[in-house]
Nucleic acid binder design. Structure first.
Lengths: 222, 222
DNA sequence: TTTGGATCCATACGTAAGTATAGTACCAAG
DNA sequence: CTTGGTACTATACTTACGTATGGATCCAAA
């Protein structure tokens, strides 16, 4: 289900046309242009074809925006199960997006020009290649580390953290928690960054179920 | 007239924005999107800028077609040379990534599994469409807002913030600062979130140079 | 002084283009 | 036979979005 050879004929033809017309024109085609290229009389047929392709995860567009139709790398997204055995990922298209332009450093005293830069801040494209996933934080157990309720932490799968790293740990009762990890004599310590909260101790004799290490944080601020 | 540095400032900025937005979105921007990215209020200004660029042979579009604007010649990050031979190759349109898979909420007490999810955390792809840029924070003026030294703030161009929004302001001495913005009687107040620091006041009679509003924060944590 | 370019603003109009709704026909699988 | 998918048709509505027209200010060059 990943190749155009296994799509219905007209869907495969639409997919190829989107790609080729986009390359030729430098901008995506409209439904009318696709219809014309296929010898159809109205846009609705094409709309139905692209809707079917969208359901299959092969194209995407911004609803309501003109000429926003584009082919997605061809991979449909797969659910990620932390508790299950990790599968080897199929090859995915490497994102070409450059991320957000870096405008410099603020409070450093130098003027800002938002566009005089070759540097870019990349977030999902930085982490997406290594199986990272995101979690939304609930609660204030790590508030003194600047991890607030509502923030998103980016987690890199790693079952063997080093001391002092902030980890996602799954406890005996299957609840997940975000804490700083320490391996001590005879036990593991999961340390909150909130002076009103106590650490969690897990005996060394128990299997410590660490899902990963926090590698980044994102916060929406408006 | 060899490089974009020798275009008038705004024309050079438009040219770069067309390229970067096209790459990031996968389709060319509209005049309105360009206007927003530049902090302008209406499309006509941008139209005039692109018209000037078109006269200089740097961009082209199909008259009357929506979203057909493209840069002529050159690679996205390369300086554009007017005097050299160039191909009329439009900027290429790229597939997009979906961002980081969301694994749920941590500390909510429920197991993390459940990744039958269609949700993705998008950062640069969320913001890239509106001309946002990133700044690296230096100092601790907003530390009580959870904005730490070394963090990256994501800034959306907006010359007219509302009270209480965290803004990037350029002061008289051309230094940039990150503060919470308040318009008061007879003056503007730029409020730090650090009890050891004083607010900055700017008289209303002075032009308040706001580059934009902080819409997001990113922190590398390992 | 005049002219042209750069840069910003506004409103109004008309077309481009997506979407909604409705219909038909054919084929394969259950 | 029923159902779902594929594939085609039409009209109508709505929003997106480019363009026209008009205005202003500032600056540099002739």
């Amino acid at each position: 289900m990943n190749t155009t050879e296994q799509l219905p004929p007209r869907q495969g033809e639409v997919l190829k046309l989107i790609t080729s017309l986009t390359e030729q024109q430098g901008y995506p085609p409209t439904l009318a242009e696709l219809a014309q290229a296929m010898g159809l009389r109205n846009r609705m047929t094409v709309h139905q074809h692209v809707a079917a392709l969208k359901k299959k995860g092969l194209v995407q567009w911004e609803p309501g925006l003109n000429r926003s139709l584009r082919v997605i790398g061809g991979q449909s997204s797969e659910p990620i199960s932390i508790n299950s055995k990790r599968q080897s990922k199929p090859a995915s298209v490497t994102p070409i997006t450059k991320g957000l332009p870096m405008a410099g450093t603020i409070a450093a005293g130098n003027p800002i020009d938002a566009l005089e830069t070759d540097e870019y801040l990349e977030v999902e494209s930085r982490y997406a290649g290594s199986g990272c996933f995101a979690l939304k934080v609930k609660g204030e157990s790590m508030i003194e580390e600047g991890i607030f309720d509502g923030d998103f932490v980016i987690v890199k799968p790693n079952p063997s953290p080093t001391n002092g790293e902030i980890v996602v740990a799954v406890l005996d009762d299957d609840t997940a928690t975000l804490k700083r990890f320490y391996k001590e004599k005879g036990r593991y310590r999961l340390q909150p960054a909130n002076k009103d909260m106590e650490p969690i101790y897990v005996p060394s004799t128990q299997e410590m179920n660490i899902k990963g290490v926090v590698v980044g944080l994102f916060r929406k601020m408006s």
